[in-house]
Nucleic acid binder design. Sequence first.
RNA 1: GUGGGCGUAGCUCAGCUGGUAGAGUCCCGGAUUGUGAUUCCGGUUGUCGUGGGUUCGAAUCCCGCCGCCCACCCCA
Length: 459
Amino acid sequence: MALTQARTMPGVLELLPLDQIAFQRMLDTIRRNYERFGFVPVETPVIEYSSVLLTKTGGETERQVYFVESTGALGKHAESVPELALRFDLTVPLARYVAEHERELSFPFRRYQMQRVYRGERAQRGRFREFYQCDIDVIGKDALSIRYDAELPAVIYSVFRELAIGPFTIQLNNRRLLRGYFESLGIADGEQQMLVLREVDKLDKRGAEYVRETLTGDAFGLSAEVADRILAFVQVRSTSLADALAKLDALGAGPEALEQGRDELKEVLRLIHDFGVPETHFALNFSIARGLDYYTGTVYETTLNEHPQIGSVCSGGRYENLAGQYTKSHLPGVGISIGLTRLYWQLREAGLIGTARSTVDVLVTQMDATKLPAYLALAGELRAAGIATEVVLEEGKLGKQFKYADRAGIRFAVVVGDDELAKHVVTVKDLRRGDQFEVPRAELVKTLRVEIEQAAVMG
RNA sequence: GUGGGCGUAGCUCAGCUGGUAGAGUCCCGGAUUGUGAUUCCGGUUGUCGUGGGUUCGAAUCCCGCCGCCCACCCCA
């Protein structure tokens, strides 16, 4: 019989258990910090009505949406769009969720959501078709204080500090300020401002020359002088809080949007510091523009200082009205998202994270099949003490059992044979260090707890 | 959606100018019936992506198709 090739489609990430454990530890850390800051969990269905997801009718998003058809509906609408689709982010479902449950929710509504989303793009290195987003958003009713714009970086600081993947910088900008500045240069049209923003956003990736050429080219037709001023402007970065405030003040007077954006940014920067984020970990970056659709004010991007090639590991911003497509209520919000699948993948590629130790702490080996009741009793005792324990249930050579433990990433093996029974002791072997010792049977739990604790700290 | 590159063992690849398919690794067994990872010995692993063409003969040369990768677009 011809075998079917066992394979997954490109653009999905599937992990072996020890890697999955490492991934899950990251999810746990993010969740713990989100909850610590008072965000509440929400999950929404993977499948939504197409009509709900596609309200923005952004040509780009529509091209990336996976549609879903039930068997019965297959082929029934050759021309029209299928009724159902997979979500491509968590923000649009959030908008629908808030609009649908508006009267049952408390505002400001602070939710976190960590689920998979789907994008039908051509697979590429570090790009996924199925990936985790870990979002937090704060949604206000009618109005939402700018202070929440400063809270999110505080959460992100807390998350990334605990993830312990090296120094990082949360970079901030303000879309209103950018638009005000463009206006002062005579680029008043909203559409064109968007297009310029999109080019400017490429600065770090493609370089100043590339952006200058595009801006002065036929598509934009800007004068060399204006292009140069834009380039000089977007290269502004701050080195400290005082420096950031000084650079903002140095912008001087200008269109209303510019002054408003500047005031917002100043307040946000000051508050981030008050939230306890060290000024080494946040900075102004006038080239940050972000997603082109809904952001209106503050925008964020977080990068790892020692790995700039990884790019942004977390981004988000302020939006004026989240759910305008679904409700007449005015619901402004601010949100930020960690693309965990990509982050994990990049960190692994860069050698910054390895495999985790197993979730199994101890393997009770089977020295002698007739003593199985003793092994099961021993395992029960360990489990009651909160130690994750596996018992070998099949007969086999001890060497094979150790090999199994080693490959499975289980660090400690417990051996009980005639020698141990006679002496009322248990042999504990540390597979990682390669040594072993005997402990009195009665002290096993206490000893293993200490060993496991140490292993967790020392790695 | 647009442009470029590559398809040989589970994995990484060699095999180039045509002459019956190879290495490392992995896996399995043994050396070692109370000790893994290290060492030594032995063993398994292939429609050479696929269909056609040229040829006495094709993994190798030519064409179609499929798949994958990279870049653009866009984004986490």
